[in-house]
Amino acid sequence: MRTKPLREAIAAPLDRGVRAYRHGYPSDLTGWHYHPEYELHAIRRSSGLCYVGTYTGPFEPGNLILTGPNLPHMWVTDADGYADDEFLGDFIPGRDLVLQFSAEFAGRCIEQFADCSALRDLLTQGTSGLLFSDEVSASVIPKIEELVDQYGPRRLALFFDIVDCLIADEGKQSLSVEWKSYSCKYPQRLENILRTIAENISRPEFTCSELAEMENMELSTFSRFFERHIRCGCVEYINRLRIFKACQLLIETDGTITGIAHDVGYGTLSTFNRNFQRYIDLSPTAFRSLRRHGQRHRAAIERPPKGEPRSSDPAKGPSNA
């Protein structure tokens, strides 16, 4: 059983700055995964639960989200999401529409074109994920559809048109807590930290102290750095990634609760159950039953009003990572 986020290798030609494609569900690209590229992800059909970093919430057709480098993410269609008669058994063709580009490519755009300066703030905000308004999503998704099949100058023209729409969206929302605009002086360090977490969260012995030591930082300094840029504590972040991976396994596999708890990095079942209840507002058994048998659970995952936190309040404090 694969239990940690899979590092997705983005195969983009050297002469291209962006990559766009469609794929169905399930596929090798729909598990709990991460990559160093930015990703603009649109859902074209089905519904279920979206997991981006420390955020979980419902998705439906038209959902458009930007994820930053090394931020684990996945979209899991649940039983209700297969209601459309056109779906072929357990496969949903063309569910996902994806646009990916590297930080290096975006950086060159910002450096060489003064008109791209506003892109910097969008990329910074995308570190923890951004959900775009329904209106902007409706206008951007057809542009991504067109970009998939375009080459040459038209391809770049569409990319900059899309970026312009995203930057201008006054209704976009951060997927962690209300956004605060901080400039990261050490983006490579932040990327290294997020990548290391993604690669190690399935290890029960993995701790924030180990991370701090790897970065040659005092734990207190590391904790301030992490919370400043991720908007939640390191322990909180690790626990959420573990629980969200468990959600996927509960929906998509028949593994035992105890086995899943161990596979996602918990040494004791009681700690796993306590954190699962805290973040999902259900026991693991109840969650599996609801999501796999077509009953909708919305108590903990409804979209909050604009400006409110999009996930459980990090101020509640960490819980045994």
Rank of each mutant, 00 (worst) to 15 (best):
D90L: 10
A9F: 15
P5H: 13
I257T: 15
E135D: 13
E37T: 11
S311M: 14
Y186W: 09
P284V: 00
R108Q: 11
F226M: 01
R44Q: 13
G265C: 04
I243P: 08
G62R: 05
S270R: 14
D15I: 11
N216I: 02
Q248S: 06
P61Y: 11
D169S: 05
M74R: 05
E205T: 15
G265V: 01
L88T: 06
C165Y: 11
D115H: 11
R203F: 08
S139H: 11
R95L: 02
S174G: 09
P36D: 05
G307M: 01
D15Y: 03
V98H: 00
Y25P: 02
E104I: 02
N273K: 10
E236P: 00
G17Y: 11
I10F: 04
F113L: 08
H41S: 07
R291Y: 15
L6G: 03
A114D: 14
L249Y: 03
D15M: 06
E205Y: 14
L219Q: 04
Y151E: 15
K306G: 11
R45T: 12
T67P: 03
G31P: 01
E178V: 08
M214Q: 14
P204F: 00
L14S: 14
R2T: 01
A106N: 07
D313H: 10
L119G: 01
R154E: 14
R19M: 09
A286G: 11
A9W: 14
A12L: 12
S270A: 14
R291Q: 15
T30K: 04
